[in-house]
């Protein structure tokens, strides 16, 4: 018996049932059908005799032989006005978040921010397409139950109520495009070797949202936020649960308005190979990054 047949028989012993649907002929057994190309392939190269199709002289897409075409018959409507200026927030639902927590993709013992969500690898964000972070939608608000310290870019009232009823905290924070690029791929950002930038202030049309305690904005007064928590609890009919001291410290952790990563200050350079952080000593730079 030849070497190839032996190998083939050995393979057969290992594979499951072989039938017509999972085998194929040896290469060269069937001749490929000629499509009509080249000198001997065909006179008309698969295009038939004469006509616009053979001569590639089609009328343009949408043309209706001279009468007013469909795509020009109707009046203007500013559907897409300002589409390139408005901010976009791709949705993440509470159900998604709960699934991540259930499957242990996200660590609830630490604060959850955009970095944590991006590190799961399950969500994509494109800052160059005017994406400014994620918005939390209320799908799964009924079943949500996890004590988390969440920082998101946009939410609505029922979502905040659902998280606070479960015993967690929500904050809405703004990140500019440069900060987003740093957060989306933190490894790539640290490898660039540039100092962590300061987070920029939100634009004029967003400042109102982020300074409003009802939205749990990061620029609003913490005392007003605690008052709003009570108001929301009364509105949706639940009592604010008591929190353990162990978790309370973690739940209280908040970022500075100019900070991008937890625990890392702007102006620092992270060296991943030497596992070292470089901090500036110049007074000017320190002042700038602290402002």
């Amino acid at each position: 018996m030849s070497n190839t047949t032996e190998k083939a028989l050995n393979l057969l012993r290992y594979l499951p049932r072989v039938c017509i649907s999972n085998i194929r002929d040896n290469p060269g057994a069937h001749k490929q059908a000629r499509r009509g190309r080249g000198q001997h392939g065909g006179d008309y190269h698969g295009a038939g005799n004469k006509g616009a199709k053979a001569r590639q002289s089609y009328t343009r897409l949408g043309y209706e032989m001279g009468n007013n075409p469909f795509y020009l018959r109707f009046p203007f409507e500013p559907y897409y006005k300002g589409h390139h200026l408005k901010r976009q927030y791709p949705p993440v639902s509470l159900l998604n978040l709960q699934k991540l927590i259930d499957t242990n993709r996200i660590d609830t013992t630490k604060p959850i921010d955009l970095v944590a969500i991006m590190n799961t690898g399950l969500f994509r964000l494109y800052p160059d397409q005017q994406h400014f972070g994620f918005q939390l939608t209320d799908e799964g608000a009924d079943i949500f139950s996890a004590k988390i310290n969440l920082e998101i870019q946009w939410t609505s009232e029922p979502v905040i109520a659902a998280i606070e009823r479960a015993g967690g905290f929500v904050t809405t924070a703004y990140y500019d495009a440069q900060s987003l690029h740093a957060m989306i791929n933190t490894k790539k950002f640290f490898e660039r070797g540039i100092p962590i930038p300061r987070r920029m202030m939100p634009p004029p049309d967003a400042i109102e949202y982020y300074s409003n305690p009802a939205n749990r904005g990061y620029l609003s007064d913490p005392e007003k936020i605690s008052k709003e928590r009570l108001v929301l609890a009364q509105k949706y009919g639940y009592t604010l649960p008591k929190l353990d001291d162990q978790i309370l410290e973690m739940l209280k952790e908040r970022k500075d308005p100019r900070q991008i990563f937890y625990g890392l200050h702007p102006g620092w350079v992270v060296n991943l190979t030497d596992k070292v952080i470089l901090k500036p000593l110049d007074e000017e730079l320190k002042e700038y990054y602290a402002s």
Binding site: F261, Y262, L264
Partner: peptide, 26 residues
Amino acid sequence: VKYEVSKNPEEWKYVERALPLTIVPQ
């Protein structure tokens, strides 16, 4: 620019927290 090299294990914990996991956790 004048800079200092600091090796603080507590600060490095924050860096590790920012970096993604390489394997899907169980």
